[in-house]
Simulated assay, not measured.
Amino acid sequence: MDAHDLDGRTELDRLLPRWHFREVHRVCVAASAGVVMRAVRETIWAEAPVARTMMALTRADAGRERRIVGDFLGGMGETVRAGEGEVLFVGVDTLEDGRARPEGSALEVVRECAEPGLLKVVMNVRFGGGVLSTETRVYATDERTRRRFRPYWLAIRAGSGLTRRSMLRAIRRRALGGGAVP
């Protein structure tokens, strides 16, 4: 079974079915699901130099030997294995300095919390039908937060797209036998 369940929905669809901001990128990969998903788990930042550079601009820790999956959201969230062909990055953020996010794991907060002032961020990497993709969804829990986040989203969208396309190409290269960058 690929990243879709029998009802055709992904874990991303179940976790964050509505969103205010969204970005999707895809590449074709002529390899088995097992090979591709192993590459998803094993690809390191050194293999995606454009992504690594973009992450460094945000001061994220994208050390050469760190794995992309597992380290993507840094301290903002957590990585969740969603099934055979899908991995989720789940995060919660606020736009207010010094404001603590609600108690619980990022996954619990995204599922259960509707407290105003939060940004729920979910990104997946999934493989199915020969297509490796990543989709990012952001949901603001109130209108004020959505309005405040919009300029930031517009400013980072191009760099975010470069980062994700670089990640997908690195994963595809590894899956097709290109291996790790020395």
Results as ranks from 00 to 15, higher is better:
Met1Pro: 09
His4Phe: 15
Asp7Val: 05
Arg9Ala: 14
Glu11Cys: 07
Arg14Thr: 06
Pro17Tyr: 07
Arg18Gly: 11
Trp19Phe: 12
Trp19Ser: 13
Glu23Cys: 10
Val24Arg: 14
Val27Trp: 01
Ala30Leu: 12
Ala30Ile: 08
Val35Tyr: 07
Ala39Pro: 05
Val40His: 01
Ala46Pro: 05
Met55Cys: 04
Met55Asp: 03
Ala56Tyr: 09
Leu57Ser: 06
Thr58Ile: 07
Gly63Arg: 02
Arg64Glu: 11
Arg64Lys: 10
Arg67His: 10
Gly74Ala: 11
Gly74Tyr: 06
Val80Phe: 03
Gly85Phe: 00
Gly85Ala: 05
Thr94Ser: 13
Leu95Lys: 04
Gly98Ile: 09
Arg99Glu: 12
Pro102Lys: 09
Ser105Tyr: 06
Ala106Val: 04
Ala106Gln: 03
Leu107Gln: 05
Glu108His: 12
Val109Ile: 13
Arg111Asn: 04
Cys113Gly: 02
Pro116Cys: 12
Gly117Arg: 02
Val122Asp: 00
Val122Gly: 01
Asn124Ser: 13
Gly130His: 05
Glu135His: 07
Arg137Phe: 00
Arg137Leu: 00
Asp142Lys: 06
Asp142Arg: 09
Glu143Leu: 15
Thr145Lys: 05
Arg150Glu: 12
Trp153Asp: 05
Ala155Asn: 03
Ala155Asp: 02
Ala155Pro: 01
Thr163Glu: 01
Arg165His: 12
Met167His: 06
Met167Phe: 10
Leu168Val: 07
Arg169Trp: 13
Ala170His: 03
Arg173Leu: 07
Arg174Pro: 03
Leu176His: 08
Gly177Ala: 10
Val181Pro: 04
